[in-house]
Amino acid sequence: MLLPGGESSDLAIETHDLTKRFGRQTAVAGIDLAVPRGSVFGFLGPNGSGKTTSIRMMLGLVSPSSGSVRLLGEEMPRRLSEVLPRVGALVEGPAFSPFLSGAANLRRFDSADPLAPPRTRGARVEAALDRVGLGHAASKKVQAYSLGMKQRLGLANTLLMPRELLVLDEPTNGLDPQGTREVRALIRSLADSGTTVFVSSHLLAEIEQICTHVGVMSAGALVATGTLDELRQVGAARVILQTPDAAAARRVLVGLGLALLEATEPDHVVASVAEGVGGDGDGLRPEAIVAALVEAGVRVRGFSVEQPSLEDRFVALTGEGFDVVQ
């Protein structure tokens, strides 16, 4: 089906030059996001990089200073009442009325959705609670919930109706490792059923395991975006050589066009390759490097090629202070 706007129909979220200024401070500086339908899109960046403000603009909570947002092919916030029932959202942590039970809170949010049928409300709330493992705590007041339970309840709230898009802001915040694994499994199962999942995090490790696409925010700007593989390939691979003949090895590597890096151990030589080094492709092959080294009389005791880790990539993109999981 071709929607008005043509190519927009295959994007779940599309922003164009989206900008938000608070007074003199620019929280979001002209980001162009394209989240394909069916993807699990990781929205990554340090705390304070503008992720939550971007999400608030996408959901119509905050109006952009300039730029536009299309959600599921529809213009926001003009078509908000048509679009948002198809979107489940967890925004900046879960929030509930503490004096109501978990189930009562969900019933309340559900009754605010004009398209949610009241007759099936009880059953849908129960099913959503069971899906996040909170069935036993349904009638407990939220003020007695732990942070992890509130996070699960927030996820249950996004699952009250069938959704085409889930926007999850830091969904594993406050969860223990077991809970984090469960949330990942939940996101995977939702993605498998065709739901587009847009998940923000400041923790790289979480994103890397479940995402197909990634966007990286830094200081309000989108500094990189693409599939996970695309992001991995950008950046130089490193050659790590273990040898007693370090000086000779360095000469050979420089002769082959590699850039020397600082080695952490005395009998190691580390160098980076601008072109891709791997088993295939047109780049410099690892075996060719080893052959050149041996030919020059370098005693090769260990040799490895490392693709840059995503973590290196993100630190490079976002600079100091990036809150990477240790």
Partner: peptide
């Protein structure tokens, strides 16, 4: 925010 994204 949750009432408004429901959307109320």
């Amino acid at each position: 925010r949750y009432l408004l994204v429901a959307p109320a």
